[in-house]
Nucleic acid binder design. Sequence first.
DNA 1: TAAGATAACGAACAGTTTGTTTTGTTTGCA
DNA 2: TGCAAACAAAACAAACTGTTCGTTATCTTA
Lengths: 195, 195
Amino acid sequence: MSSVKPDRRINRTRETLFHALSALMLEKRYDDITVQDIIDRANVGRSTFYAHYQDKEDLAVSTMITILDSLTDTMEQSNTDPRQFLPGRGLFEHIREHHQMFKTLTSGRGLDLFFQKGQEYWSERLATRLQAMLPQNQEPKVPIPILAHYVSGTFVTLLKWWIDNKMPYTSDRMAEIVEQLVTPSVQAGLFGMSG
Amino acid sequence: MSSVKPDRRINRTRETLFHALSALMLEKRYDDITVQDIIDRANVGRSTFYAHYQDKEDLAVSTMITILDSLTDTMEQSNTDPRQFLPGRGLFEHIREHHQMFKTLTSGRGLDLFFQKGQEYWSERLATRLQAMLPQNQEPKVPIPILAHYVSGTFVTLLKWWIDNKMPYTSDRMAEIVEQLVTPSVQAGLFGMSG
DNA sequence: TAAGATAACGAACAGTTTGTTTTGTTTGCA
DNA sequence: TGCAAACAAAACAAACTGTTCGTTATCTTA
């Protein structure tokens, strides 16, 4: 068993490529960015790029997954109560702090993929939590998968709106709004309108 | 004033191109489809394509706008009461009838653009209706633009879920679910939780 | 139905972008 | 120091794009 240490250059190159892509996405649409643009900006050889990633999309997706993981960590940390189905307020705050990055990821209709992946990701986690809120053997008014999809969809939709509109409200206010909108729906969806 | 009749060939070519794109989107991702693929499939000359559309995206967007207009017509027809903010049930039914087309438009993560455009489109219309529901000079708990975005977002999200999951519920049931989820939220968003 | 107009065809074109390959250089690490 | 891995640079074929232009097919209208 040879303990081979990974060459530091690898991560450095990957980071450089990520930053180059991010910077470029601030300037033009994702579709209009070429591999040539990326490697020029990153000062990385063409062959090196293809040694690390299959193509442009591969780079983009890898980048997104990384971000999504860190985001989800934040989400879980700020909210350990399984009865609480909404992402904690910390999430909006976290995003505000890194808004440049998210602006990057979403501007120019760049990566709807990011939101799509995020929604799937969260939808699965929510389904579990919602199921747990329901007394055993009780049928929900609205099927759980739809409910989960609805909640994560709402969250993603409003998150996107917030970013696209240059964050006109504080992160706390946004979290409050999401809560105000989603809570009564979930109540209704699980237990029915009036008890 | 010369009464020049439009040449039928124009519409025929456009329709042919639309169908070719639709068919191709069932086979591969939108991004992977080339203009070459489209004109081969459509048996249309290269120069003819560029005489009608600027590029591939132009064709796709034109097609979408056409469909969106017809969809919105259906929506408005089945629902003339300005106090009623939800798309009528007829919309789900209409989509079910043309599900092949919508499958085409949305499969392979083809045109998120379609949903995006649809959401913007409906969001504007909804804002007006929501404003009308509010007594004059009364401040809503949640800003109207957010509320409008939320409703249209929910609708689009669930519509997409419905299509992606092969329409496991009837169109009536889906319309009912949307209603059950959105109504209490809008109540809360406009007037507050309990009066 | 013939003439004129318009639309479509198809080939050829330069310019890009892509992904691969080859060769030589730099860097990390033992 | 020396080796192996990572990288740079350049050249390459293949594919796609968008345009041009001469030719052919089709429609409209007189």
